[in-house]
Each structure stands twice: as structure tokens, then as C-alpha cells.
């Protein structure tokens, strides 16, 4: 995959919002919400029914949408669910999303779903396995696949490489795009003691098609990617630094999954991030790519 595959996606720029159940009725009734695009989780829509489902479908049929999977267990060993992949493909076509993203992690083991983003070992064997899974998943999807870097709280087993090398080898080996979560980079930097900008500067930024941004919280010695608080200024500044480094106006998505505020408050948070986004785009951009 080359960055060209993401060109011509001008309708996806600026700062969008994750579409969440508490806001469905209000958003469906309000076409003038001002949000340039939404991101939705297919697992939360496919196979659902009732009033919230009707509202979600009305929004997805009306507004620009990106799709973001939660629990396909990309790096796991359980076989794909063929029925789900078929439904997912139809859903991606229906939403007209330009790409579909999944997490670079595993979520199920031996048929048991843990509903948590669990880290993969940073090993050559795990790279080979994950590359094969990503290539196979891409072959089942009607749109390009992006993988998202996760927050992790421990290395799983003895590492043969660092996280950045692991991510790079998977993205390049599978030939897929990168959903770069800048909050996850920031949280990992806090937990493992590294400089997030130096980390990003050596990553394959030419593969970035979209950014995620969110809030986090510290519990004792561990900082957790809670998606339950406002985005703090250092993370906004890291988003701006990344956008400038990319030299392209990729879409940024604000995630909020816990302590979800009223829609008006979330719209205000989005507007604050949009202003930061516009501030970067107002100045001439440098070229992106490997630091």
C-alpha cells in the first residue's frame, strides 16, 4: 500500500467524533451538528436492532463515516468468522468508508473473547503471524485496511525488538496503512519512559491515513488509556507536531468511551481540537515520511 491509496479523501479532514449510543437520538435529529465525519464500530451496529439502531443507520446513511473495528483479534489465532466478515464487507460498502481500521493486538483466545486490547509479543514470530493475518484480512475487505497502535502496559514475553520496530515491520510486511493513535504513543511514552516525538520521528509516517486522539488517566504508577477524560494539552500539542510532520491534512478522530459527556460538551471539545488542527494547517507544512 502506498500513500496514494489515501489520496482524494478530501471529504475526510478535520476532527471527527466517535459515534456513541447515548448521542444517537440527538445526532439523528440534528443534521447541523457541524461534525465533519463520524467513526463507528461495526461490531456495535451489525446485527443490532431497535430504536438506537434505526438512529445509527439514519446517521450512517446521511453523514460521512469511517469504520473502526474493536474485536476481530487481528493478532490472535482464532479463525475469522465468515458470516461476520461477509456482513462487515457489506457494512463497509454501505457506509462508503474509504478504509477500515482494526487494532494491532489480540482480543480472543481459543474462541473466548476477552473484550480487551491485549498486546502482541514483540518477536519475529509474532511479526510473521500478524503480517499473514493482516494480509488475509485485507483480502476479505472491500476497502484498504489500517492498523492502529495500541496502548500497552507490559511486554508479553521476551522482546526481540522494540514496539516501534514491531509496528513498522507489521505495517510494511502486510502493506497496510496506519491509524496512528497519538494518545496511545503519549501514554506508552509515560509508562515506558521515552520521548514520543523521537519515537514518532523514526516511524513510517508515510503510511498514516488517520489519527486518533483521546483522554487518559493515571492510576498509581500506571497511566491508562481510558477514553474517559478531556484531551490534555500535551497530547494536543503532539497531534499538532504529528500533523506538521506528516505535511498532509489527515482526519483526526476524537474518541470518548467512558464518562461520556452531553453532546454539547463533546461538540465543544471537538471544536477545541478543530481549532488546534486548523492552527497547524494555517502554516506551510513540511514533508512527512521517515524522520
Amino acid at each position: 500500500m502506498t500513500p496514494d491509496r489515501f489520496s482524494g479523501q478530501g471529504r475526510f479532514a478535520g476532527v471527527g467524533l466517535g459515534l456513541r449510543r447515548p448521542h444517537l437520538e440527538a445526532v439523528a435529529a440534528r443534521p447541523d451538528h457541524g461534525v465533519p465525519f463520524w467513526e463507528t464500530c461495526p461490531e456495535n451496529v451489525i446485527g443490532d436492532g431497535g430504536r438506537p439502531h434505526r438512529d445509527a443507520c439514519a446517521i450512517l446513511d446521511r453523514d460521512p463515516v469511517l469504520t473502526h473495528g474493536l474485536a476481530i483479534s487481528l493478532g490472535g489465532f482464532d479463525p475469522w468468522d465468515g458470516d461476520y466478515l461477509r456482513d462487515l464487507g457489506r457494512f463497509l460498502v454501505r457506509t462508503e468508508t474509504p478504509w477500515h481500521s482494526e487494532h494491532l493486538c489480540f482480543t480472543s483466545v481459543d474462541g473466548s473473547s476477552l473484550h480487551e486490547l491485549l498486546p502482541l509479543p514483540f518477536t519475529r514470530e509474532a511479526v510473521r503471524h500478524t503480517v499473514a493475518r493482516a494480509r488475509d484480512l485485507q483480502a476479505h475487505l472491500p476497502v484498504p485496511l489500517l492498523l492502529e497502535n495500541i496502548t500497552y502496559y507490559a511486554e508479553l514475553g521476551r522482546a526481540e525488538m522494540d514496539e516501534g520496530t514491531f509496528i513498522t515491520e507489521v505495517l510494511e510486511g502486510a502493506g497496510v496503512g496506519w491509524l496512528l493513535d497519538v494518545n496511545n504513543v503519549y501514554v506508552n511514552a509515560l509508562n515506558f519512559g521515552f520521548d514520543p516525538k523521537a519515537w514518532l520521528a523514526r516511524m513510517p509516517l508515510e503510511r498514516v491515513a488517520q489519527l486518533h486522539i483521546a483522554g487518559h488517566k493515571r492510576f498509581g504508577t500506571l497511566t491508562v488509556d481510558t477514553h474517559g477524560a478531556d484531551v490534555i494539552d500535551p497530547v494536543i500539542e503532539l497531534m499538532q507536531w504529528t500533523l506538521a510532520r506528516l505535511g498532509r491534512p489527515v482526519p483526526v478522530l476524537l474518541e470518548r468511551d467512558n464518562h461520556i459527556p452531553d453532546l454539547e460538551d463533546l461538540l465543544a471539545e471537538r471544536a477545541r481540537l478543530q481549532a488546534a488542527y486548523d492552527e497547524v494547517l494555517a502554516v506551510p507544512m513540511r514533508g512527512g515520511g521517515h524522520g
Binding site: H115, E116, T221
Partner: peptide
């Protein structure tokens, strides 16, 4: 059944691994 090198890694990252027990259980 993990290898000794992995066992030492579990020792080194025990607090972070234990956090997954709490986080995943909260989720479930």
C-alpha cells in the same frame, strides 16, 4: 509452559500484566 526467558519477562512486567486482569475483567 512458557520458556524461561518469557518467565523472566513476566517477572519484570508483573505489574502491567496484572493490570490486564483488572482491565479485562472490568470490561467483561
Amino acid at each position: 509452559g512458557l520458556l524461561e526467558a518469557d518467565a523472566q519477562s513476566f517477572q519484570q512486567f508483573s505489574a502491567g500484566l496484572a493490570a490486564y486482569r483488572e482491565l479485562a475483567r472490568l470490561s467483561l
